[in-house]
Computed example of a mutant assay.
Amino acid sequence: MGQTARVSVFVWIAAVSLAAWLWLLLCQGFFWRTDVRLPPRSEPEAWPSVCVVVPARDEAAVLPASLPSLLAQDYPGRAEVFLVDDGSRDGTGALARELARHHGGLPLTVDSPGEPPAGWTGKLWAVRHGIALARVREPDYLLLTDADIAHAPGSLRELVAAARTGGFDVVSLMARLRVESVWERLVVPAFVYFFAQLYPFRRIGRRGSRTTAAAGGCVLLSAETAERARIPDAIRHAVIDDVALARAVQGAGGRVWLGLADRVDSVRPYPGLPDLWRMVSRSAYAQLRHNPLVLAGTVLGLALVYLAPPLALLAGVAVGSGVTAVLGGLAWLVMTGTYIPMLRYYRQPLWLAPLLPFTAFLYLLMTVDSAVQHYRGRGAAWKGRTYARPDTVTEES
């Protein structure tokens, strides 16, 4: 009787997991497809002016591979770059000036805003300073891009043409992250896959859709919309600032488009698991709004959706339940199939696809660790700064 009850439980878990995967496959905005790239575009008769704002804190290691690509942009209109040195201790500002002298190209201004006041994250304080410098030039667009992002020569031109043609207030590209080490191969494509599952790109560009997000590494933003949406003041304490920016723009009546990049790449290395662990865990609990109940639901959901299929298959074989094994195997097969397009986008071997449950288990542990670090007072820490929960920050008048 006890054996039968256990088999019945396994069958139900496997069935629910398979049902979840069928729903994700067909009803979650086809999140698994990777063909959402820059929309159709035509070149405007008169090219609008653009100011590029680059917040940078201790970025000397990656700047030689990224900043020259911005300075070398082939853009027909007026454009210039503002690099905001956010209290770097590695000579980031001096290196930026030297790179500009050596490479030439677009005009570069390097400035520093000083330490952020209470209630501001360092990056957004730097972005605020950069936007203030840029507004003196009265640009039509702002390109907010991270210091580790390298752009192909025509990147800015394509972003502006897409925004103008489609009538978008934000055009954002999910930069192609570096995938070279073993751990990067296991973790990085899954990071983008999970992001797309939460924020299906197809829904973001659709009129009337409530789903919105942006990718902070590359955000072209209408300067008029930025002022109307009070960017970045309205999101000054946001740790996940790209999603917060998109929501603020949408709340102000703006249109947002997000897709995968072909010609925008991150040059930042994450060679080992500890590096990737810090990248994910620093903001994972913030994504869950620091809510223990949401954390518990997320852990349960990850276990049911990603861990249950292979475990059900093994359990079914072990206890001789063909139904359990078949249901678990089918769920695992659907999961594997939805991951293959992302691996192809990252030019990775397809044998990594069946390992997604293992990667999901790592993300589960990273999420739990993010919550643990938060309650120890070390949550949302990045480059020497630790940020409080938004609801603990005193609002300024």
Rank of each mutant, 00 (worst) to 15 (best):
L67P: 00
F361W: 13
R230G: 08
S397E: 14
S397F: 08
A20F: 08
G130H: 04
A214H: 01
R228M: 00
A161K: 05
A118L: 08
G316I: 10
V249H: 01
Y306S: 01
Q197Y: 12
T145Q: 11
A380M: 13
L142A: 03
H103E: 10
L124P: 03
R206C: 05
I13T: 02
P64C: 04
R389C: 12
R157Y: 06
P76H: 11
L142S: 00
L313I: 07
T338Q: 12
A56Y: 09
I131T: 04
L177D: 07
G29C: 01
V294L: 14
A284N: 02
G114F: 09
L143H: 03
A234Y: 00
L144F: 01
S283L: 12
A190E: 09
S321L: 10
K383F: 14
Y141E: 06
V323C: 12
Y306K: 03
R344Q: 13
V170H: 00
V127G: 02
L288E: 06
A126G: 05
P189M: 01
R33K: 14
W21D: 01
T338W: 02
V319A: 01
L300D: 08
P139R: 05
E98A: 13
Y363D: 00
Q373F: 05
V136H: 10
A229N: 07
T109W: 08
V280H: 13
L71H: 11
P68I: 02
M279D: 14
G87S: 13
P390L: 13
R178E: 09
V256I: 02
P271M: 08
D146M: 08
V239E: 06
W332C: 03
V81A: 03
A46S: 14
L311C: 07
L26G: 07
A360R: 02
D58S: 10
L293N: 08
C27F: 12
W21Y: 07
S209I: 02
P309E: 11
D146E: 15
S172L: 10
A79D: 09
P48G: 03
A223T: 05
A312E: 00
E98S: 15
R128H: 14
G87V: 10
L260R: 06
G297N: 13
Y363F: 15
W277G: 01
F31K: 03
A213F: 07
G328K: 07
